[in-house]
Design a protein around this nucleic acid. Sequence first.
DNA 1: AACCGATTCAAACGGCAGTTTAGAGTGATG
DNA 2: CATCACTCTAAACTGCCGTTTGAATCGGTT
Lengths: 212, 212
Amino acid sequence: MRADDRPEATRDRLLDAAGAEFAEHGFRHATVREICRRAGANVAAVNYHFRDKESLYEAVVTRAHRYAVDKFPPGLGLGADPTPEQRLGAFVRAMFLRMFDEGRPAWQGKLMAREMFEPTRALAILVNDIIKPQHLELMSIVRALMPGAGEAALRLAVNSVIGQVLHYHHARAVTALLQPAAQYGAEDIERLAGHVTRFSLAGIRDMAGGGG
Amino acid sequence: MRADDRPEATRDRLLDAAGAEFAEHGFRHATVREICRRAGANVAAVNYHFRDKESLYEAVVTRAHRYAVDKFPPGLGLGADPTPEQRLGAFVRAMFLRMFDEGRPAWQGKLMAREMFEPTRALAILVNDIIKPQHLELMSIVRALMPGAGEAALRLAVNSVIGQVLHYHHARAVTALLQPAAQYGAEDIERLAGHVTRFSLAGIRDMAGGGG
DNA sequence: AACCGATTCAAACGGCAGTTTAGAGTGATG
DNA sequence: CATCACTCTAAACTGCCGTTTGAATCGGTT
């Protein structure tokens, strides 16, 4: 049977397997051999279909980006003419969903979180294609909540929001040791998103009112 | 000249070099060869003075902990009978200082941040010796600010504070690309600590007032 | 001087990872 | 049927890493 006849061509299976491995272990720790094993392909498959491990990684990153944009469009459950508060809530919720969704390719959030901590050459791609647009969107949301605030204050507020969300991903190993009972199911994600949104709104309003 | 006569014995030089390498590259990426090169020692030195790479890592972790406790004691510039707000401010400031201080062994904060993201076997040590005491201290601070709140609410507030602080360490590569101008000098750290403290106080007060 | 324990050293070992290579299979094309 | 491009495969190559080994060095002790 030729590869094209199979339900999934080898190239696609490699992208799937690589996405899972890269998201779980990072670029360096993920091994080409394990990726090929998961994809049911030969060790040389990566070098044949993609030039090398790094090019495969870039392909995974851009693919995850396209998928994430499809699955979590910017609007994301917002009605027409939403308030800034609603936009912030939707933004935070979407970030949580991207990071904790265990669906098929849920790598986008995990890859992004990992690149932040352990950058590779693909970081420039990620920043330009994914992070910068989201950063600008969150900046505009916060700007609407803090009219008249300077750029520096906006950045501080944005970092506070992002930091809270990413922490639940970064620190999950520690959390598992500190609070063994805690598990992140679907409703917990909604609870966390609600908390971060309210907490951040209070902080932002304080910044807007206090005059900095 | 015998090793004991040198200003620094080989064992100590190894600990210094290993601390820097581990903090910068993490346990797996740091190489024994580079550590020994920095320490001016033979490749076999690690296996002679410590049993293996992992034992060296544990020694570095516990050493960094002792140093951090000495340099940043829990009180840290607080007067007698401080308010909860002052305690929170001191706590946040101490975390920032530990992470950004470039002094001799400033690894404690960096190692901790790294272990959170990429745990090793030493994570249990770190959690018990370093993270859990700090976690409990922050819990008590937040408890004083949110009297009557449940454990779950306290944990959410604690996570929000920690997440904001750690974000400035985790995301520094991305920040460098998004805001090339931003640099973290001594006064910037004070500014960041002040922001996170105020932002968090507003969020915590909102949680305490809103009734959750 | 002879010996000893501690330390240092160069060299090698074994394993794993990314990549390359040479060849075999396969469907389409003439 | 011969040819060709594409795909896949087993095996080897190269380099790095942690560790081990056996000898050399050196101060102190008898």
